[in-house]
Design a protein around this nucleic acid. Structure first.
Lengths: 239, 239
DNA sequence: TTTGAAATTATCGTATACAATATATGTAAG
DNA sequence: CTTACATATATTGTATACGATAATTTCAAA
């Protein structure tokens, strides 16, 4: 079913990649929510391939920590813990501060054009209320910066961090709408600092931006697995 | 052959992990050199498992960039390019500078004991001329620091960077012996700065240490694939 | 002798089948 | 009515088999 597997045989070796890309996108667009069970058989039927291929895809997603594989239990969309969330944002501050320094030094007009184009798309997706679209574009802004910085290794790391951040948003974000416009404004400020080649300011704005994202999260409670206790703690045992 | 697969059936699900660990160690200890072909059939016979299991292990190693999988061609131990080498060392400077800050703030006596124990083992392995042992211990020093820093995400990233650095050493290191004692001395200085809770100095020493490692490499030539031109460039066409 | 193409061989990519494990259900005992 | 255990079911882990692709060798022609 679905339109996968219908890619003829033009690119035979990219069958994995096609399925990987679709599943990754589904998770990023928050169509597959954290905790969702990813059955090998079911996915195999959906995409019209055997479990062997699905397994390969799931393992790849697991390496990227977007999916969690429990031995003999199966694969699930990762539910990041509050601790992981904090670690990821902290790591992003470290990596992206370095990225900003490199960007301010190395960028050219083409890079700036790409960043501005992305930013306009962000604004448009907020106008149109396309949340999942905005999530993707917002991540792209950061990845674009990493590419401009010119360190492929850092870019790869950041790609993983950004996708994990998306999962964090699903689980812990307080106010989607406010966060959107806020984030977008901060991106514009960062762009402005880049344009002025103001390294210090660009770095500071980026670090603050990431801290703001962290502060807009509900990370106070214990693990999400314990949420049930918080939710039903008062009413249970009373029925 | 080899003693793998002989782990009885105590831990069935760790079969992959066993093989992974052995192959990873072999690469780190420089018994498997960059460029070595890793045939699925051969490895399957060696470890007494099917290609399915070997494939899983190779994919994991490929994700960590220690192995490179060429579609329809097979898996090879990665041969890092000079550009990758520079990127990796640059990324390490960024990550490990952050690690040092956290270490100086958070470490306790137990952490210090572990670091000093590791350092003594480093010295011993140099004394005894156990090069491959030293490589592992030297990497452990950095990973130990990352663990003390208390950010698992960064620790995971650094693990990948350290293992890739080992491959870089194999391909590009100028002088093994000099590098060993030099590196070890620098580790001692870093330890000293940590003991004094001198954050700035600790960070600077670490960054310089990583730069020293980079400067001790032969990264001037083009890609290693082009080495043939450098080597035979003068003599070819003369025969 | 060298070059080029066809056939052969070896190796990888994917599907299928069977075995092992964990979960769920149902039944019986406390 | 609850709990514990045994059976049944579902799902994952691994091996094997077949098909596709790339490398190698062979043979013929220039």
């Amino acid at each position: 079913m679905i339109q996968a597997g219908s890619t003829d045989k033009l690119k035979r070796s990219s069958q994995d990649d096609q399925i990987y890309a679709q599943m990754f996108a589904a998770i990023m667009e928050q169509k597959l929510l954290p905790g969702t069970k990813l059955s090998e058989d079911t996915l195999g039927e959906i995409f019209g391939v055997s479990r062997t291929t699905i397994r390969k895809v799931l393992q790849r997603l697991a390496y990227e920590k977007v999916v969690q594989i429990v031995p003999n239990r199966g694969a699930y969309v990762t539910e990041p813990t509050p601790e992981e969330a904090r670690e990821i944002l902290e790591t992003r501050r470290v990596v992206e501060a370095a990225v900003m320094k490199a960007v301010v030094r190395n960028y050219n007009q083409l890079d700036l054009d790409a960043l501005e184009k992305n930013h306009r798309a962000e604004e448009a997706s907020i106008e149109n209320g396309e949340h999942s679209n905005w999530v993707a574009l917002s991540g792209d802004f950061h990845l674009l910066l990493a590419r401009i910085a010119g360190n492929k290794t850092m870019e790869d790391f950041l790609r993983e961090l950004v996708s994990r951040t998306s999962l964090i948003h699903v689980q812990y974000q307080k106010n989607k709408l406010a966060q959107q416009s806020c984030s977008c404004d901060e991106h514009r400020e960062i762009l402005s600092a880049i344009r002025n080649r103001d390294e210090k300011k660009a770095v500071k704005l980026m670090v603050d931006h990431l801290s703001a994202i962290e502060n807009a999260l509900h990370l106070d409670g214990k693990d999400n697995a314990n949420d049930l206790y918080r939710i039903f703690g008062n009413t249970a045992k009373q029925t």
